[in-house]
Structures are given as C-alpha cells and as structure tokens.
C-alpha cells in the first residue's frame, strides 16, 4: 500500500521557512521601484517641483492646489472603475454618457421631489447609483451573455445613454440642483473639499478591495487568463458582469459629485471622460491586455495630465499643448513598459 504517503494537501504544515526566507522587505521594495506607478510617481513629483519652482506664488498656492484636486476628483472616481475593468481585460467607453444620464435623471427626480434637503440629496444618490448600475449591468449582459465585444457594447451604450439623457432634458441642461448638494460640492472639511475627501475614500476602498480581497484577486486572474480561470472554477462571466456594474455604479456616483460641483447637468462636458480615464489608467501601468495594474498607479495617472494642464495655463502656454504632450507620453509609457517586460520575460 503506497497510499499512506497521501498528500497532506493545502492543510499541510511542513516547515518551509527555508523557501520563504528570501521574500524580505528589500525584495518587495526593489520590485516596487521597478514598477510603472513608481516611475510615473517620480515624473509627477518632478512636474510638481518644476511648476512650483517656476511659479511658487500661483502654482503652489493653496487655491490652485485645491483646484487641481477638485478637477481630478470626478475623473479619478471614473478611473477607479476603469482600472478594475481594464485589469480584467475589458473596456468601458460608456462611463461619460452614463455619468450624464445618471445626473440628468437624478436631477430631474430631485426637481420633481421639490424639497431641498439632505433627504432630496439622498434620493438623488439612490437614483443616480441605480441608473449607473443599470447601464453597467446592461453592458455586462451584452458582453458576457450576448458575447458582443466590450468595445462595441460600451460604444453602443455610450451613444444610447447620451441620447437618452438628451431625451430626458429635451436637449438643454437642468440647472436646478438642490442647495444641499451644491453645499456638498463646494464645502470643505478641515480645509479639504468634501469632493476630495470622498474621492480619496473611494480610491482607498477601491485599492483595498482590488489588492487585498478575493474579488480583486479574481479580477486579475480573469484578466490574465479567462479560460484558465474558468477551468479553475471561477465564474468568469459573473465576475465581468459585476465589474461592468461597478463601473456604471461609480459613474452614477461621479454624476452626483459633478452635479454638486457645477450646479448643472453638464450634458456636453463628459464626452472625453472615458478616454481620459483610460489614459490615466494606462499611464498608471495597467496593461491593456489585462492581468496587471494598481489603483495607486491610476491615481498618479490621473494627476499627471491634471498637473500638466494646470501648469501650462499658469505658465501662459496654450493648454492645448497638454493634450499633445499627454498623447505622446501615453505612447512612450506603454512602449517603455513593453521594452522592460520583454527584458524581464523569458519565453
């Protein structure tokens, strides 16, 4: 009987300290220093230092810093969702339109509700989150059940959601937003704008869930090898559906923040959101092919274009240069990443 050598299995407790010993902090730091978020973080710091040095009174003023953070906050919330989607190997082009649609419906509902209280705002949030999630579930359904590619599915709902938003408002912005919401959009806590606080909380939660939970781990696995994940017993379609729903939910959430900040539905203001979010996520080192990426990278990726645009304006350079520069930087960043990877990878 050779069966008595049966595998102790995952509960086995043999002492493997020898194998584990080299996984020290030093190695982790070394790995982190070689990662894209680290490089990009350095670039961001250099940009900040450069503009602050040239224009300390304007660029580094608390008013300006506040503005940069406020400008980045709505985009960062969208980009958190896009990070999940892209790590899972997907795409979501609809987030800008979904944001507009959710904002329009929420504004309309709050208007009909009449009163101007925290309750009205809470109702608005529920409506916006529900609208965003519904579009996300629709995207997920088209992608996982109807098997229409993510690019086409979300391109379709990008058009459909924006059209529907125009239908709801007859084509003009709703400018009546509850004061309670505007107070949220303009208020601060301890000198830090509420929007920035909320965005920070969303990003931290997004990062913790992505990097520390099973949900996050499955996001990486599904993006790295979908068929392998399926064979490993992961419900790949179900997971993707959840991720598109999450992306829609975050777009709905961002819609309320946008309403609070601008006191209007900004129908025309979000056409570029998905591309800006994707740009930020890619700058932050998330692979288009899925399987790799971090939230901290995305945060850096959101701030590089934001700082650049702001700095150019302050220096009196036409802000359009920011678009030109960022366009080339994205290409360069992905190229550098590929070269690095080819060196590190043995085939």
């Amino acid at each position: 009987m050779s069966g008595d050598a049966a595998i102790p299995g995952p509960a086995g407790t043999a002492d493997a300290a020898g194998l584990l010993a080299p996984q020290g902090l030093g190695r982790k730091l070394k790995a982190a220093a070689a990662s894209s978020p680290f490089y990009m973080g350095i670039i961001l710091l250099l940009l900040v230092a450069f503009f602050s040095f040239l224009h300390p009174a304007t660029f580094a003023s608390s008013y300006n810093v506040r503005n940069i953070f406020l400008d980045a906050s709505v985009l960062l919330i969208l980009a958190v969702g896009t990070t999940y989607i892209m790590i899972a190997g997907g795409f979501d082009l609809s987030i800008g339109s979904v944001l507009v649609f959710s904002g329009v419906v929420a504004a309309q509902v709050m208007l009909q509700f009449g009163t101007d209280s925290l309750l009205t705002v809470a109702l608005g949030f529920v409506v916006a989150l529900a609208c965003g999630t519904a579009w996300g579930v629709f995207n997920g359904f088209c992608i996982t059940r109807l098997r229409v590619s993510a690019l086409i599915s979300t391109l379709g709902s990008m058009g459909a959601a924006l059209g529907a938003a125009y239908l709801v408002t007859d084509g003009s912005d709703i400018r009546t937003v509850p004061n309670a919401l505007i107070a949220l959009g303009h208020g601060s806590v301890g000198g830090v704008p509420w929007l920035v606080v909320i965005t920070a909380v969303v990003s931290v939660i997004g990062g913790v869930v992505l990097h520390m939970t099973r949900f996050g781990r499955h996001t990486y696995l599904v993006g790295s090898n979908p068929e392998g994940s399926r064979r490993a017993g992961i419900n790949v379609s179900g997971h993707l559906l959840k991720l598109y729903a999450l992306s829609g939910l975050l777009a709905g959430f961002a819609a309320m923040l946008s309403l609070g900040r601008f006191s209007t539905t900004t129908l025309e203001g979000h056409a570029n959101d998905p591309l800006e979010a994707i740009t930020a996520v890619v700058l932050g080192g998330t692979a288009l092919t899925g399987g790799r990426g971090t939230i901290i990278g995305t945060v850096v990726g959101v701030f590089i274009p934001a700082v650049l645009a702001n700095g150019f304006i302050i220096m009196g350079i036409q802000p359009f240069w920011q678009m030109v520069v960022i366009g080339f930087v994205v290409i360069a960043a992905v190229y550098a990443d590929q070269i690095k990877r080819q060196k590190g990878e043995r085939l």
């Binding site: 995952p10 781990r217 696995l221 790295s224 064979r231 490993a232 692979a287 790799r292």
Partner: peptide, 17 residues
C-alpha cells in the same frame, strides 16, 4: 491554465483562495 501576470502562490490557489 496558469496566469502569467500573477505570482506562483496566486496561481496555486487560483479559484480556491
């Protein structure tokens, strides 16, 4: 059926984390 972007232990426990 391994995931090239993840660590050996993430692969070992894939789907059974």
């Amino acid at each position: 059926s391994v995931c090239p972007d993840l660590s050996p232990s993430a692969n070992m426990f894939m789907g059974r984390e």
